[in-house]
Structure formats: C-alpha cells, structure tokens
Simulated assay, not measured.
Amino acid sequence: MPDHAAQPVERRLPTEEARDLLGLVRELIQREIRPTAAEEEEAGRFPRDLFRLLSDAGLLGLPYGEEFGGGGQPYEVYLQVLEELAAARLTVGLGVSVHTLACHALAAYGTKDQQAARLPAMLGGGLLGAYCLSEPASGSDAAAMTTKAVRDGDDWVLTGTKAWITHGGIADFYTVLARTGAPGARGITAFLVPGDAPGISAAAPERKMGMKGSPTSQVHFDGVRIPDAARIGDEGQGFSIALAALDAGRLGISACAMGVAQSALDEALAFTTDRRQFGRPLADFQGLRFMLADMATAIEAGRALYLSAARRRDAGLPFAKEAAMAKLFCTDAAMKVTTDAVQLLGGYGYTADFPAERYMREAKVLQIVEGTNQIQRVVIARHLAGPETPR
C-alpha cells in the first residue's frame, strides 16, 4: 500500500526564496521519491541517480556558501527541507544529512585553496560523501580511535578500519578522522580522502532492521596514501572539527526524526478516520483521539526545539547543548509516535502492506546514530553541571 499523502506541513520560512525552494522540493518529492519509496526500501535499493538529481537541484549544499556552489540557506531553512525529504523516505533525508556532515570539515576549516579546489564538486557536482569517525571498538568513545595516519615525506599513509559508515563503499569522498599523535582527543587529525584512492575497500553492507536502502558498512584503509593537501585544519585539531560537525549533524537527525514521525501520524490519522468499528470511525473513540493528540503535540514540540537550536546556530550563538537536546527529544518522540502509529493500525500496522511498521523500524536507528541518546544526556548534563569529577 502506498504511503498516505497528507496535507503539507505549514511552515514558517524567513524569505520568499526559501518558500519557493520548499515548493520545488515538494514537487520533486511527489514526482521522484514518494511514489516508489516503500518498494525501493523493501528491495534495499539505494537511489544513487536520485542523489545526482538532488545535487543538480542544489539540495546537497543548501547550508553552505554560494561562492563555492552552495545554496547559501540558513540552517532554519535547510532543516525544514531535510524534514520533508525524510518524511518521504528516510534513506534520502538521512543521506542528505550525512553528505552535509561530510562536507562540514572542508567548508568550515579548509583553506581557501582547498575549498576552491574541492567544494564546488562536493556541493553541486554530483558527488556523494561519507563521514568516517566510528570504529569497531570505538563508538561513543570516539577519541579512542586506532586508525592511524603516518607522515611519509609530503604524504600521509592511512591505515585502519572505520565502522557504521553511511554510504560506505559507494561514497565519492570520505571525511576521515585518524590518529596522528599521542592517545586521546588531541592526537587526531581530519583528512579528505577520495573514494577511489588505492587501498580503500568496504565490507559487505550491514543487515539492518530498517533503512535497508541505505548502505552502511565498514570501510578499510590499507596503506592509503594521500598528500598533505588532503589534511583539513591543523594536526591534532581533528577531534574538535569532528565535534563541531556532530553538533550540526545532530540537528539534521532531529529534522529527519520529525519527518518520519509526521509520516507516521499522517498514516495513523488517515487510517483511524477511514476505518469504522462499532458503527463509527476509529477516530471517534476518545482513547484513540487522545493518542493522536499526544503524537501531534510531540511532533510540534520537537520541530520547535530543533528550529530554535537552528536559529541559534544561524545567529552565531552557541548551540551544542540545544542540538543535543533536540536530537534526544526528537528521536525519542519519533520512536514513541511511530510505535503508537503501529498500535493505532492494529494488525494492519504490523504488516508490510502499510508503511507504519517501516516508520517504526526506521525511527529506532535515529536514537543511535551521531551519538546515542545516552550520550546526548551526557553532553547536556556537562553543559548544565560541568564535567564529571575524575575518578
């Protein structure tokens, strides 16, 4: 059964340009994404041609500067576009978020020469990026990474394995964090590595419970040689670059979560309005009406939270705490909303003939990626009460 086409979310956008942009995005979604989303996800197909189309339309570089081919849009606008994409198909919305994350290091910390040489192709040249931070033995404790980059004359030689990499094996470029110095956060450096560099290989994609159309895999770097010009920022600056990227990336995950939750609510509302039991629509029963009301309230609250954090970012204000709060709240809310949507559809909700079960499976990963929600609580608490007392 195709996804229910609901009324578009009413959005407050800051400019006429942004309103026109959203209209074009909605047309593209209705034409290119929504009609085949369920079928493509069930088949586990990644829409590589669609990402080229998104690149041609300027949607892979929205929050970056126009001087290098970006869209020059504030995060407030970019995130609402991202939510619309994720509502149609999470593989697409999350893929755009990951690509944006992969571009962040170069856009924010690269030299002008590096940016001029690489950013136009990354932002609007049809390329697709991936972000390599986690490893098989270092997920939440990212500073414990063991992937190494060793100086060899004017080059660096990368060796190690990264894990849980969205677009692993198909990306055109990887932003890679690797150890160049002593143990700990201060010994990490960022690099921009071409996807076709000799020595890069990918393991078979992970077999996931959701987002089957988005490849996630380990990526191996076996003596990958790159020039020093591929280094982003100073030696030892990589971990702070990674954290800055994650702050922004968490807002992307928040927007994706609200997109999935909104689709689940739309589906539940359509079903309970149309389905009749005991001579009247399910939506007439107070217990079910209250569930719908709670779902809608959680979505509006999450949307307001991520947009508030985005506006802080756009204003140049600190937003790390607010980004962690948004990621925590929005993804927990998405899990609750999608679970309730399955419940409201009853037995139908548990079948793959309706999209509610897919939304529930997809929502789960959003509580894990780009910092688990337990890590978000650690981040928030540190901002409130300071670092934990050393043991």
Results as ranks from 00 to 15, higher is better:
L384F: 06
L282F: 14
P2Q: 08
A283H: 09
L246Y: 05
E370Q: 15
A352M: 11
E32F: 06
Q367W: 12
K208P: 01
T331E: 02
L384D: 09
T389M: 14
T161Y: 00
A6V: 09
A261N: 03
A204T: 14
E206H: 15
D56E: 15
H4A: 12
V337I: 03
A310C: 08
P390S: 09
R34N: 01
F271S: 04
P194Q: 10
L28D: 05
A87G: 15
Y306P: 10
I241K: 01
L307Y: 02
A142Y: 14
A171D: 01
A309C: 11
R151A: 14
R26E: 11
G129E: 04
S55P: 06
L60C: 12
R151F: 08
Y131E: 07
R207A: 15
R303K: 12
L192D: 10
R313F: 13
R26K: 09
L133E: 09
M360E: 08
D353S: 12
F221H: 05
A244R: 13
K336H: 04
L317V: 02
A315P: 07
P14Q: 08
M1D: 06
A381I: 03
G316V: 07
G259W: 00
R48S: 09
V157S: 04
T189S: 15
A121D: 12
R151M: 08
A88I: 03
T389C: 07
G169F: 02
E83D: 05
T146I: 07
R151S: 13
F221I: 04
A326L: 02
R118S: 08
G72I: 11
V77M: 14
E206V: 13
L128G: 04
Q115D: 06
H167I: 04
P194L: 09
G65I: 12
L305P: 01
Q277P: 04
E83C: 03
A334N: 04
P35E: 05
G233K: 08
S240M: 09
Y348V: 02
E67W: 11
L101C: 01
I33V: 14
R186W: 06
A86S: 14
F278C: 13
A381F: 05
V379L: 11
L50I: 08
A244E: 14
G346Y: 04
H167F: 03
D353N: 11
H99Y: 01
G69V: 11
G184K: 06
F278Y: 14
G252I: 07
E10L: 15
G72D: 12
A385I: 13
P14S: 13
L344I: 06
P281N: 02
Y131F: 15
E39L: 06
P227E: 08
A117H: 12
W164S: 03
L307V: 14
T297F: 04
L265K: 01
E66I: 14
V157P: 03
E39M: 09
P63W: 04
P194I: 05
Q286H: 15
G23I: 00
N373G: 12
E66P: 10
R179A: 05
T180N: 00
E357N: 11
E322W: 02
A203F: 10
G279L: 07
W164G: 01
M291Q: 10
G139I: 13
I253E: 06
F68T: 10
D155Q: 13
P74L: 12
A244I: 08
R391W: 13
L79K: 06
V150I: 15
E322C: 01
F329G: 00
D247H: 11
V378T: 15
D172E: 09
F239I: 06
R377D: 11
P194G: 08
K327Y: 02
